[in-house]
Simulated scan of single mutants.
Amino acid sequence: MSGFDDRERAFEAEFARDQEVQFRITARRNRLVGEWAAERMGLTPEETDAYAKAVVQADFEEAGDEDVIRKLAGDLTAAHVEISDAEIRAALNEKAVEARRQFMDKQG
């Protein structure tokens, strides 16, 4: 029975590592897309840093990306930046690739 227990623990540990990696990549993606939006809104470097952190925090409101998309869309619209949800989703996808690349570069 010990063999099964060891395998189960190994799978659980691998799952936990995978979840942590995905969390870090998503948080990095959100920071990058926050910086992208801040640039579009013309924020200062200090405001950009604070805004990027706020975007990362917004992702904790609900599962999935809708909370981040709502925040970005609302803030960009309030700043008189014309943008569609499709453009925001495209930026999220682009920044997800960049975040994964940065994470892998950091690991290797």
Rank of each mutant, 00 (worst) to 15 (best):
M1H: 09
S2N: 09
G3P: 00
D5P: 01
R7F: 13
E8D: 08
R9D: 12
R9Q: 13
R9N: 13
F11Q: 11
A13E: 09
A13W: 02
A13N: 06
E14Q: 07
E14S: 06
E14W: 03
E14D: 06
F15V: 06
F15M: 14
F15I: 08
R17W: 03
D18A: 14
E20W: 04
F23A: 14
F23H: 13
R24E: 13
R24N: 14
R24Y: 08
T26N: 15
T26A: 15
A27H: 04
A27M: 05
R28Q: 14
R28G: 07
R29Q: 09
N30T: 04
R31W: 06
R31Y: 11
R31V: 03
L32N: 10
L32A: 07
V33F: 06
G34N: 05
E35H: 11
E35S: 12
E35F: 06
A38P: 07
A38E: 08
R40M: 13
M41N: 12
M41V: 10
G42H: 03
G42Q: 05
L43T: 04
T44F: 08
P45N: 10
E46S: 13
E47N: 15
E47T: 14
D49Y: 10
D49G: 13
Y51E: 05
Y51S: 05
A52V: 05
K53R: 15
A54Q: 11
A54K: 12
A54S: 15
V56S: 09
Q57T: 11
A58I: 07
A58W: 05
A58P: 05
D59M: 13
F60M: 14
F60T: 15
E61L: 15
E62L: 10
G64R: 11
D65K: 13
D65V: 09
D65R: 12
D65A: 14
D65P: 04
E66T: 12
E66D: 15
E66K: 15
E66G: 12
D67A: 15
D67V: 12
I69V: 09
I69P: 02
I69D: 02
K71S: 08
L72Y: 04
L72Q: 03
A73Q: 10
A73F: 11
A73L: 11
A73E: 06
T77Q: 10
A78L: 01
A78S: 04
A79P: 01
H80P: 00
E82K: 00
I83H: 00
I83R: 02
D85M: 00
D85F: 01
A86K: 01
E87F: 00
I88R: 01
R89T: 02
R89M: 04
A90S: 03
A90P: 00
A91S: 02
A91I: 00
E94H: 01
E94V: 00
K95L: 04
K95G: 05
A96C: 01
A96N: 04
A96F: 00
V97P: 00
E98K: 07
R101C: 02
R101M: 04
F103C: 04
M104T: 08
M104F: 05
D105E: 06
D105L: 05
Q107D: 03
Q107Y: 05
G108Q: 07
